[in-house]
């Protein structure tokens, strides 16, 4: 193992996923995510970006390969060990996936569920320090304190995504995965959310892996861009190095440029 690999928070080796046998969606992907900054994955729809992100925290089970994270292979974990690993990985979803009928603060506190005894979860007896931290995070993601007791279904899309980010941060994660966090948002809100993600990633030094459709946003906020097409990585480097020729390889054709 090289010194660089040792520093990596996450190393993916030969990751393969087939939903139907013989038709791989991910073709032996290998990646290293090191300890800082925001990494954007770009690529056309249906190219396996979401599958890749979801394999990492095992919302999707990979077919083959290794996902090394904090000394274990995520691809082989199950039960309690998998849950312990998931506690360390925050996730932000395209459609926010907040529990609509719960209040904002309950959604944020959900980030601590991996550490909480069930009776406390049922009775909503969260430790005081968790509640205090949840309030801090609600403000840190740009919402006012008064939002805490509002029900999630009363919020706008941008506000919901902020709550989603607060929930992920509440886990105090070693890694954040964001699965197209801006695809359901208008352009202005998308910028705000990407700004927030990159700011949190930098300030709290949590490496963040973002799936994104918008190449402009990716260039603007990511320190590293991974271009995928047909289930394989075809570009991996800084935004500055991403040429029109690379984009053509990634998306095929050039009409969109």
């Amino acid at each position: 193992m090289t010194a660089a690999a040792g520093r990596a928070v996450l190393s993916i080796r030969n990751l393969r996923k087939e939903y139907r046998a013989g038709q791989p969606v991910l073709k032996d992907i290998s990646l290293e995510i090191d300890g800082s900054g925001l990494t954007a994955i770009i690529g056309p729809s249906g190219t396996g970006k979401s599958t890749l992100i979801r394999c990492i925290n095992r919302l999707v089970d990979p077919t083959a390969g290794e996902i090394l994270f904090e000394g274990g292979d995520l691809a082989r974990l199950s039960g309690g060990a998998l849950r312990q690993a998931r506690r360390r990985i925050g996730m932000v979803f395209q459609e926010y996936n907040l529990v609509e009928r719960l209040s904002v603060i309950e959604n944020v506190l959900s980030g601590r569920l991996g550490y909480l005894a069930p009776w406390r979860a049922f009775l909503r007896r969260f430790p005081d320090e968790d509640v205090a931290r949840a309030f801090d995070l609600i403000e840190a993601v740009g919402l006012e304190e008064s939002f805490a007791t509002r029900r999630a279904d009363a919020l706008s899309g941008g506000q919901r995504q902020r709550v989603g980010i607060a929930r992920a941060l509440m886990q105090a994660p070693a890694l954040i995965l964001a699965d197209e966090p801006t695809s359901s948002l208008d352009p202005k809100t998308s910028v705000e959310i990407m700004e927030l993600l990159s700011e949190m990633s930098a300030r709290r030094s949590i490496p963040t892996l973002v799936n994104i459709h918008n190449v402009g946003l990716a260039r603007r906020y990511a320190g590293r861009i991974i271009g995928m097409t047909g289930g394989a990585v075809v570009y991996d480097g800084p935004p500055a190095g991403l040429s029109d020729a690379d984009l053509k390889t990634i998306y095929g054709g050039e009409d969109f440029l």
Partner: peptide, 14 residues
Amino acid sequence: MTAAPASVRRWTRF
């Protein structure tokens, strides 16, 4: 990080 609030904020469900 925001500054720690003067008093610890509490929350109850209802």
